[in-house]
């Protein structure tokens, strides 16, 4: 059980600034997601928490105590690797037992710990099998069991399900969420998939080239992005960000002072037949339909529920849902 805090942490690798003055707090028992593109610093944060790297400046606290002098082994933080790193020559049971056996813990305690963890992860029935005979999801759970069996204060996962196919990812992320709730431990989770991040996380940090751009619950970040960057990272299709000059074409007023661009989520764009924009493309996806619109040469996307009858080439009038317009200044910062 532990909270994890970064206080103004900076980390360089040679010339590269991997983390630039990063601060955040992860509360105890949270499912915290680090989200950003490749090389934005997510993996560096994990290494710093584990103690595999030392910060050049700033401080890392686990459970309120600075850990700069605590060795990786003493931090008692577990890690589930992207490739899971299960030992292929051992059964699932031996894989799970491994960390305890290595520490010379007595057999009775090991048995109790293993059965406790395997109950919570629902892997009791597959423990006798070697990893090669397990499905992707089962291997995942065994790897998590191995990480949790030694009762770490927190555990970290580096993009653990990106290798699975789309359908299995949808199932696995719900399963991960359930596991985290049942186990009740702080989980720091790295992903570059926005849908996955929003699905699993209690709290998340959006990173860009070593800097934290925004921290909050997925819903806060989705509804109130503080910059065009965060706005563009969450949601698919991404938020439309267009010049303020087009606001009137969507029946909006001038917006707050200093507004340079207007942001509208595709699902907040209402479309009706009439003059205004032209439909460039219709993508019917069954449950919803995505329209690509051409508004005076600017491309916009709208997502509609169901299967409305629009065809490419039609003219439509656009309107933005009440109170759902976002305004950004010239530097891309959100205006209240």
């Amino acid at each position: 059980m532990a909270s994890i805090s970064f206080r103004n942490v900076t980390k360089r690798f040679g010339e590269t600034l991997a983390l630039d003055d990063v601060s955040f707090d992860i509360r105890d028992n949270a499912f915290f997601c680090l989200f950003g593109p490749p090389l934005s610093g997510k993996s560096t944060i994990l290494k710093l928490i584990l103690g595999l790297e030392q910060p050049d400046a700033g401080e890392i606290l686990i459970d309120g105590r600075p850990v700069s002098n605590v060795s990786p082994a003493k931090r008692n933080v577990a890690m589930v690797f992207q490739n899971l790193a299960l030992f292929p020559h051992m059964s699932a049971l031996d894989n799970v037992r491994f960390p305890l056996v290595e520490r010379g813990i007595d057999a009775a305690t090991i048995r109790a710990r293993v059965s406790d963890v395997s109950d919570k992860l629902h892997i009791g029935h597959i423990l006798h099998k070697p990893p090669a005979q397990l499905s992707g999801g089962e291997r995942q759970r065994v790897a998590i069991a191995r990480a949790l069996v030694r009762d770490p204060v927190a555990y970290l996962m580096d993009d653990p399900i990106s290798a699975l196919d789309a359908r299995l990812r949808e199932e696995t992320r719900v399963e991960l969420r359930r596991i985290q709730q049942d186990m009740g431990k702080t989980l720091v989770y790295v992903t570059h998939d926005q849908e996955e991040a929003m699905s699993v996380a209690d709290g998340m940090a959006v990173l860009e080239s070593g800097r934290v751009r925004q921290i909050g619950t997925p819903e806060e970040l989705y509804r109130h992005p503080n910059s065009t960057y965060v706005a563009s990272m969450l949601g698919a299709p991404a938020m439309n960000v267009v010049p303020m000059a087009l606001a009137a074409r969507m029946q909006l007023g001038a917006g707050p002072a200093g507004a340079a661009s207007l942001g509208v989520r595709p699902e907040n764009l209402r479309v009706a037949r009439g003059p205004g924009a032209r439909i460039a493309e219709v993508e019917p996806l069954g449950g919803f339909t995505t329209l690509t619109l051409d508004l005076e040469g600017t491309q916009m996307r709208a997502t509609l529920r169901g299967q409305p009858q629009f065809t490419a080439g039609e003219d439509v009038t656009l309107r933005v849902d009440e109170g759902r317009a976002h305004f950004f200044d010239g530097a891309g910062q959100a205006l209240a």
Partner: peptide, 12 residues
């Protein structure tokens, strides 16, 4: 272009 994932340089 997404930057190709390069392993972070070892510290000296």
């Amino acid at each position: 272009a997404p930057a190709s994932a390069t392993p972070e340089a070892d510290t000296s």
